[in-house]
Amino acid sequence: MDLSVNIGPLRLQNPVMTASGTFGYGREFAELTDLSRLGAIIVKGISLAPRPGNPPPRIIETACGMLNAIGLENVGVERFLTEKLPWLHQFATPVIVNILGDSVEEYAALAARLNDVEGIAALEVNISCPNVKRGGVAFGTVPETAAEVTRAVRAATSLPLIVKLSPNVTDITLMARAVEGAGADAISLINTLLGMAIDTRSRKPRLANVVGGLSGPAIKPVALRMVWQAAAAVSVPVIGIGGITTTEDALEFLMAGACAIQVGTANFFQPNATTTIVDGLAAYLEQQSLTSISQVVNSLRIDT
């Protein structure tokens, strides 16, 4: 039974990855999950300099989901390379580094810094961050700036490049095509949906940042729809993200056209969600008398 998949030049033993920001730097889950069984580990997003993140409260649970406004807290690229990455060398599991920045130049500088580092299999570019030079409009909500970031990172690294799309756009296919045209080897989607919650007793927002990113099972149908649309619009591999909690969820994304998936919020409440899904996918292939997970990818049947 073959669960392996190719994401552009990257070969994974199975299609199950951890979504950035939901799995720390891997080590946080080492006692509760077998990291060697993952398709890839995507670590917490890294910026050039450390970031302290937003004031609390940063998270709040909503119906079948959660809102977060962590504020991209991270240790910065240098501490990541000296304190976090070396520990992951003991596993054969590919490590994908998620990068973020305030400016095109910061993205490019990060990509260049990580280019020759041992033990990094690919970069995932988080373009949902605000573009400081353009009034804080997220890079990932304007096709031209999304393409600009992608081009700059592409020029700065020879590593495989995954661009992670924001769902907070009118037409996801425009974004998908823009980053494909700018040199992305693959696209991943969706990042969180912007949302908010209010405490009706105090009439205050429940997040100090007022708005935050919605994730978890609540967003799965939206994510699935966007993955299906994006997969039809581009020829590069698509990685499905958004509320994936069970094997069934993962299969839906694969059928919609994703060739791999990322498990995010589920890691928080089910630390072994990823390996459970790996087992579940193998069981599904067996039940269906299939030999390869590629037979599931893009197998959606729509009556015409």
Partner: peptide, 17 residues
């Protein structure tokens, strides 16, 4: 005591200044 999503140091939601 704070709101906490994972308890494992991954979500970074349970901050105190």
């Amino acid at each position: 005591e704070t709101h906490m999503a994972c308890g494992l140091g991954a979500c970074l939601g349970c901050t105190c200044p």
